[in-house]
Design a protein around this nucleic acid. Structure first.
Lengths: 144, 144
DNA sequence: GCTGAAAGCCGGGCACT
DNA sequence: AGTGCCCGGCTTTCAGC
Protein backbone atom coordinates (compact mmCIF):
# COMPACT_ATOMS: atom_id res chain seq x y z
CA UNK A 1 0.00 0.00 0.00
CA UNK A 2 2.35 2.73 -1.24
CA UNK A 3 1.57 6.14 -2.76
CA UNK A 4 0.91 4.60 -6.19
CA UNK A 5 -1.66 2.16 -4.75
CA UNK A 6 -3.39 5.05 -2.97
CA UNK A 7 -3.46 7.06 -6.22
CA UNK A 8 -4.96 4.09 -8.06
CA UNK A 9 -7.68 3.57 -5.44
CA UNK A 10 -8.49 7.30 -5.47
CA UNK A 11 -8.87 7.39 -9.24
CA UNK A 12 -10.90 4.18 -9.34
CA UNK A 13 -13.29 5.63 -6.73
CA UNK A 14 -13.89 8.55 -9.10
CA UNK A 15 -14.24 6.38 -12.22
CA UNK A 16 -13.94 2.61 -12.13
CA UNK A 17 -14.72 2.42 -15.86
CA UNK A 18 -11.51 3.93 -17.25
CA UNK A 19 -8.91 1.79 -19.03
CA UNK A 20 -5.77 0.47 -17.34
CA UNK A 21 -3.80 2.41 -19.94
CA UNK A 22 -5.40 5.71 -18.84
CA UNK A 23 -5.08 4.79 -15.19
CA UNK A 24 -1.43 3.79 -15.64
CA UNK A 25 -0.54 6.97 -17.52
CA UNK A 26 -1.90 9.02 -14.60
CA UNK A 27 0.45 7.34 -12.13
CA UNK A 28 3.42 6.70 -14.45
CA UNK A 29 2.95 2.97 -15.04
CA UNK A 30 2.30 0.71 -18.03
CA UNK A 31 -1.12 -0.88 -18.53
CA UNK A 32 0.20 -4.31 -17.57
CA UNK A 33 1.78 -3.17 -14.31
CA UNK A 34 -1.34 -1.18 -13.44
CA UNK A 35 -3.50 -4.23 -14.05
CA UNK A 36 -1.29 -6.31 -11.74
CA UNK A 37 -1.42 -3.65 -8.98
CA UNK A 38 -5.21 -3.47 -9.10
CA UNK A 39 -5.48 -7.27 -9.15
CA UNK A 40 -3.45 -7.45 -5.93
CA UNK A 41 -5.53 -4.70 -4.29
CA UNK A 42 -8.61 -6.83 -4.96
CA UNK A 43 -6.87 -9.99 -3.77
CA UNK A 44 -5.86 -8.34 -0.47
CA UNK A 45 -9.42 -7.08 0.06
CA UNK A 46 -8.55 -3.38 -0.13
CA UNK A 47 -10.88 -3.12 -3.13
CA UNK A 48 -14.03 -5.03 -2.18
CA UNK A 49 -16.04 -4.77 -5.43
CA UNK A 50 -16.71 -2.65 -8.50
CA UNK A 51 -20.16 -1.10 -8.31
CA UNK A 52 -22.38 1.80 -9.42
CA UNK A 53 -23.74 4.75 -7.46
CA UNK A 54 -27.51 5.03 -7.96
CA UNK A 55 -29.71 8.09 -7.39
CA UNK A 56 -31.95 7.02 -4.46
CA UNK A 57 -34.86 9.20 -5.57
CA UNK A 58 -34.85 7.65 -9.04
CA UNK A 59 -35.38 4.14 -7.66
CA UNK A 60 -38.10 4.97 -5.13
CA UNK A 61 -36.05 5.64 -1.98
CA UNK A 62 -36.59 9.37 -1.62
CA UNK A 63 -36.89 9.44 2.18
CA UNK A 64 -33.73 9.05 4.27
CA UNK A 65 -33.77 8.59 8.05
CA UNK A 66 -31.44 7.45 10.81
CA UNK A 67 -33.01 5.44 13.61
CA UNK A 68 -31.54 4.91 17.07
CA UNK A 69 -32.79 1.56 18.34
CA UNK A 70 -33.01 0.98 22.11
CA UNK A 71 -32.99 -2.56 23.48
CA UNK A 72 -33.28 -4.47 26.74
CA UNK A 73 -31.04 -7.35 25.64
CA UNK A 74 -27.69 -8.04 24.00
CA UNK A 75 -28.10 -7.29 20.29
CA UNK A 76 -24.75 -8.67 19.15
CA UNK A 77 -26.27 -11.62 17.28
CA UNK A 78 -29.27 -9.78 15.81
CA UNK A 79 -27.68 -8.58 12.57
CA UNK A 80 -29.81 -10.94 10.52
CA UNK A 81 -33.05 -9.53 11.91
CA UNK A 82 -32.08 -6.05 10.70
CA UNK A 83 -30.82 -7.35 7.36
CA UNK A 84 -34.25 -8.91 6.78
CA UNK A 85 -35.74 -5.42 6.39
CA UNK A 86 -34.72 -4.33 2.86
CA UNK A 87 -35.10 -0.60 3.56
CA UNK A 88 -32.29 -0.80 6.12
CA UNK A 89 -29.11 0.17 4.30
CA UNK A 90 -26.73 0.12 7.28
CA UNK A 91 -26.91 -1.34 10.80
CA UNK A 92 -24.29 -0.73 13.48
CA UNK A 93 -23.82 -1.57 17.15
CA UNK A 94 -23.02 1.66 18.96
CA UNK A 95 -21.61 2.89 22.24
CA UNK A 96 -23.87 5.16 24.28
CA UNK A 97 -27.50 5.20 25.32
CA UNK A 98 -29.05 3.35 22.35
CA UNK A 99 -27.88 -0.11 21.21
CA UNK A 100 -28.12 -0.08 17.44
CA UNK A 101 -28.07 2.66 14.80
CA UNK A 102 -29.68 1.97 11.43
CA UNK A 103 -29.79 3.98 8.20
CA UNK A 104 -33.14 3.66 6.41
CA UNK A 105 -34.11 4.61 2.85
CA UNK A 106 -37.83 4.36 2.12
CA UNK A 107 -40.21 5.45 -0.63
CA UNK A 108 -42.28 7.68 1.67
CA UNK A 109 -42.77 8.65 5.29
CA UNK A 110 -45.58 6.08 5.38
CA UNK A 111 -43.14 3.35 4.39
CA UNK A 112 -40.70 4.68 7.01
CA UNK A 113 -43.38 4.23 9.65
CA UNK A 114 -43.79 0.67 8.39
CA UNK A 115 -40.06 0.05 8.93
CA UNK A 116 -40.31 1.38 12.50
CA UNK A 117 -43.15 -1.06 13.15
CA UNK A 118 -41.01 -3.93 11.90
CA UNK A 119 -38.09 -2.77 14.09
CA UNK A 120 -40.31 -3.04 17.18
CA UNK A 121 -41.07 -6.63 16.17
CA UNK A 122 -37.38 -7.60 16.54
CA UNK A 123 -36.63 -9.58 19.73
CA UNK A 124 -35.16 -7.32 22.43
CA UNK A 125 -36.04 -3.97 20.81
CA UNK A 126 -37.64 -1.69 23.40
CA UNK A 127 -37.82 1.62 21.55
CA UNK A 128 -36.83 3.69 18.50
CA UNK A 129 -35.88 7.29 17.92
CA UNK A 130 -36.08 8.30 14.25
CA UNK A 131 -34.30 11.32 12.76
CA UNK A 132 -35.55 12.29 9.30
CA UNK A 133 -33.11 13.90 6.86
CA UNK A 134 -34.46 17.10 5.27
CA UNK A 135 -31.56 17.75 2.90
CA UNK A 136 -28.30 15.95 2.14
CA UNK A 137 -25.28 18.27 1.81
CA UNK A 138 -23.12 15.49 0.37
CA UNK A 139 -22.30 11.78 0.46
CA UNK A 140 -18.82 10.91 -0.78
CA UNK A 141 -16.09 8.25 -0.88
CA UNK A 142 -13.56 7.53 1.86
CA UNK A 143 -10.68 9.98 2.30
CA UNK A 144 -7.21 8.77 1.22
CA UNK B 1 -37.64 2.37 -15.55
CA UNK B 2 -39.24 -1.07 -16.09
CA UNK B 3 -38.37 -4.45 -14.55
CA UNK B 4 -35.47 -4.97 -16.96
CA UNK B 5 -33.90 -1.63 -15.98
CA UNK B 6 -34.23 -2.55 -12.31
CA UNK B 7 -32.61 -5.94 -12.96
CA UNK B 8 -29.73 -4.23 -14.79
CA UNK B 9 -29.16 -1.74 -11.97
CA UNK B 10 -29.27 -4.55 -9.39
CA UNK B 11 -26.69 -6.63 -11.24
CA UNK B 12 -24.43 -3.64 -11.87
CA UNK B 13 -24.50 -2.81 -8.15
CA UNK B 14 -23.20 -6.31 -7.47
CA UNK B 15 -20.58 -6.22 -10.25
CA UNK B 16 -20.09 -3.21 -12.49
CA UNK B 17 -17.16 -4.89 -14.23
CA UNK B 18 -19.02 -7.62 -16.12
CA UNK B 19 -19.45 -7.47 -19.90
CA UNK B 20 -22.64 -6.23 -21.59
CA UNK B 21 -22.98 -9.70 -23.13
CA UNK B 22 -23.04 -11.35 -19.68
CA UNK B 23 -25.35 -8.68 -18.31
CA UNK B 24 -27.68 -9.01 -21.28
CA UNK B 25 -27.83 -12.79 -21.09
CA UNK B 26 -28.99 -12.51 -17.46
CA UNK B 27 -31.98 -10.35 -18.42
CA UNK B 28 -32.72 -11.83 -21.86
CA UNK B 29 -31.29 -9.06 -24.05
CA UNK B 30 -28.49 -8.77 -26.62
CA UNK B 31 -25.26 -6.98 -25.75
CA UNK B 32 -26.20 -4.02 -27.97
CA UNK B 33 -29.63 -3.49 -26.43
CA UNK B 34 -28.15 -3.86 -22.94
CA UNK B 35 -25.52 -1.26 -23.75
CA UNK B 36 -28.21 1.15 -24.94
CA UNK B 37 -30.33 0.61 -21.80
CA UNK B 38 -27.38 1.28 -19.50
CA UNK B 39 -26.38 4.35 -21.53
CA UNK B 40 -29.86 5.82 -21.03
CA UNK B 41 -29.82 5.00 -17.31
CA UNK B 42 -26.63 7.05 -17.06
CA UNK B 43 -28.06 9.84 -19.22
CA UNK B 44 -31.16 10.11 -17.02
CA UNK B 45 -29.01 10.24 -13.88
CA UNK B 46 -30.31 6.98 -12.41
CA UNK B 47 -26.74 5.64 -12.55
CA UNK B 48 -24.50 8.42 -11.19
CA UNK B 49 -21.03 6.85 -11.63
CA UNK B 50 -19.18 3.55 -11.58
CA UNK B 51 -16.91 3.25 -8.57
CA UNK B 52 -15.19 0.80 -6.21
CA UNK B 53 -16.03 -0.14 -2.63
CA UNK B 54 -12.94 0.12 -0.44
CA UNK B 55 -12.33 -1.53 2.94
CA UNK B 56 -12.16 1.46 5.35
CA UNK B 57 -9.78 -0.31 7.72
CA UNK B 58 -7.32 -1.02 4.92
CA UNK B 59 -6.93 2.67 4.07
CA UNK B 60 -6.62 4.03 7.59
CA UNK B 61 -10.24 4.85 8.48
CA UNK B 62 -10.91 2.19 11.07
CA UNK B 63 -13.01 4.34 13.41
CA UNK B 64 -16.61 5.14 12.43
CA UNK B 65 -18.80 7.62 14.30
CA UNK B 66 -22.00 9.57 13.76
CA UNK B 67 -22.09 13.09 15.15
CA UNK B 68 -25.21 15.13 15.88
CA UNK B 69 -24.29 18.80 15.49
CA UNK B 70 -26.32 21.43 17.38
CA UNK B 71 -26.42 25.00 16.14
CA UNK B 72 -27.75 28.41 17.07
CA UNK B 73 -28.14 29.61 13.48
CA UNK B 74 -29.53 28.47 10.12
CA UNK B 75 -27.09 25.90 8.73
CA UNK B 76 -28.65 25.63 5.28
CA UNK B 77 -25.69 27.25 3.51
CA UNK B 78 -22.92 25.63 5.55
CA UNK B 79 -22.40 22.51 3.44
CA UNK B 80 -19.00 23.71 2.30
CA UNK B 81 -17.71 24.08 5.85
CA UNK B 82 -18.46 20.42 6.53
CA UNK B 83 -17.08 19.31 3.17
CA UNK B 84 -13.78 20.99 4.07
CA UNK B 85 -13.17 18.31 6.73
CA UNK B 86 -12.02 15.24 4.76
CA UNK B 87 -12.98 12.71 7.46
CA UNK B 88 -16.64 13.70 7.06
CA UNK B 89 -18.15 11.20 4.64
CA UNK B 90 -21.77 12.41 4.81
CA UNK B 91 -23.48 15.59 6.06
CA UNK B 92 -27.25 16.01 6.27
CA UNK B 93 -29.68 18.64 7.57
CA UNK B 94 -32.09 16.90 9.90
CA UNK B 95 -35.46 17.43 11.55
CA UNK B 96 -35.52 17.27 15.33
CA UNK B 97 -33.39 18.61 18.15
CA UNK B 98 -30.01 18.77 16.41
CA UNK B 99 -29.42 20.62 13.14
CA UNK B 100 -26.92 18.55 11.20
CA UNK B 101 -25.94 14.88 11.24
CA UNK B 102 -22.50 13.89 9.96
CA UNK B 103 -20.87 10.51 9.37
CA UNK B 104 -17.17 10.49 10.24
CA UNK B 105 -14.47 7.95 9.38
CA UNK B 106 -11.13 8.55 11.10
CA UNK B 107 -7.89 6.66 11.66
CA UNK B 108 -8.22 6.65 15.47
CA UNK B 109 -10.28 8.03 18.31
CA UNK B 110 -7.66 10.73 18.63
CA UNK B 111 -8.30 11.82 15.06
CA UNK B 112 -12.04 11.70 15.77
CA UNK B 113 -11.53 14.12 18.62
CA UNK B 114 -9.66 16.35 16.18
CA UNK B 115 -12.67 16.31 13.85
CA UNK B 116 -14.96 17.32 16.74
CA UNK B 117 -12.69 20.27 17.47
CA UNK B 118 -12.92 21.37 13.85
CA UNK B 119 -16.72 21.02 13.93
CA UNK B 120 -16.88 23.46 16.86
CA UNK B 121 -14.89 25.93 14.76
CA UNK B 122 -17.69 26.10 12.18
CA UNK B 123 -19.80 29.29 12.36
CA UNK B 124 -23.07 28.66 14.21
CA UNK B 125 -22.13 25.31 15.75
CA UNK B 126 -23.02 25.28 19.45
CA UNK B 127 -22.48 21.64 20.38
CA UNK B 128 -21.81 18.08 19.23
CA UNK B 129 -22.95 14.66 20.33
CA UNK B 130 -20.78 11.84 18.98
CA UNK B 131 -21.87 8.21 18.76
CA UNK B 132 -19.02 5.77 18.16
CA UNK B 133 -19.73 2.57 16.21
CA UNK B 134 -18.43 -0.56 17.95
CA UNK B 135 -19.32 -3.06 15.21
CA UNK B 136 -20.93 -2.77 11.79
CA UNK B 137 -23.54 -5.47 11.06
CA UNK B 138 -23.67 -4.53 7.37
CA UNK B 139 -23.52 -1.70 4.83
CA UNK B 140 -25.21 -2.49 1.52
CA UNK B 141 -26.63 -1.02 -1.69
CA UNK B 142 -30.06 0.53 -2.12
CA UNK B 143 -33.06 -1.81 -2.25
CA UNK B 144 -34.71 -2.26 -5.65
C1' DG C 1 8.08 -5.47 -10.04
C1' DC C 2 8.07 -3.36 -14.55
C1' DT C 3 8.12 -3.14 -19.87
C1' DG C 4 6.66 -4.19 -24.38
C1' DA C 5 4.43 -7.07 -27.57
C1' DA C 6 1.03 -10.51 -29.04
C1' DA C 7 -3.66 -12.63 -29.02
C1' DG C 8 -8.26 -12.63 -28.01
C1' DC C 9 -12.27 -10.35 -26.35
C1' DC C 10 -15.13 -6.38 -25.59
C1' DG C 11 -17.13 -1.74 -26.28
C1' DG C 12 -19.37 1.22 -29.30
C1' DG C 13 -21.40 2.16 -33.83
C1' DC C 14 -24.35 0.98 -37.87
C1' DA C 15 -27.62 -1.08 -41.07
C1' DC C 16 -31.81 -3.46 -40.69
C1' DT C 17 -36.12 -4.91 -38.56
C1' DA D 1 -36.61 -0.63 -28.86
C1' DG D 2 -33.90 -4.84 -30.32
C1' DT D 3 -30.68 -7.88 -33.34
C1' DG D 4 -26.43 -9.09 -35.63
C1' DC D 5 -22.21 -7.64 -37.48
C1' DC D 6 -17.88 -5.21 -37.61
C1' DC D 7 -13.66 -2.79 -36.37
C1' DG D 8 -10.56 -0.29 -33.19
C1' DG D 9 -9.07 -0.60 -28.79
C1' DC D 10 -8.78 -2.71 -24.63
C1' DT D 11 -7.79 -6.52 -21.25
C1' DT D 12 -4.87 -10.16 -20.17
C1' DT D 13 -0.86 -12.91 -20.63
C1' DC D 14 4.01 -13.81 -21.12
C1' DA D 15 8.97 -13.56 -22.25
C1' DG D 16 12.66 -10.74 -20.88
C1' DC D 17 14.93 -7.44 -17.80
Amino acid sequence: MDDIDRALVLRLQQDAGQSYATLGAAVGLSAGATHERVRKLRERGVILRTTIDVDPGAVGSGVLAYVMVDSNAWMGESGGAFAAIPEIQEAHIIAGSASVLVKVRAASTGRLQDVLRRLYAIEGVSGTHATVVLETFFERSLPL
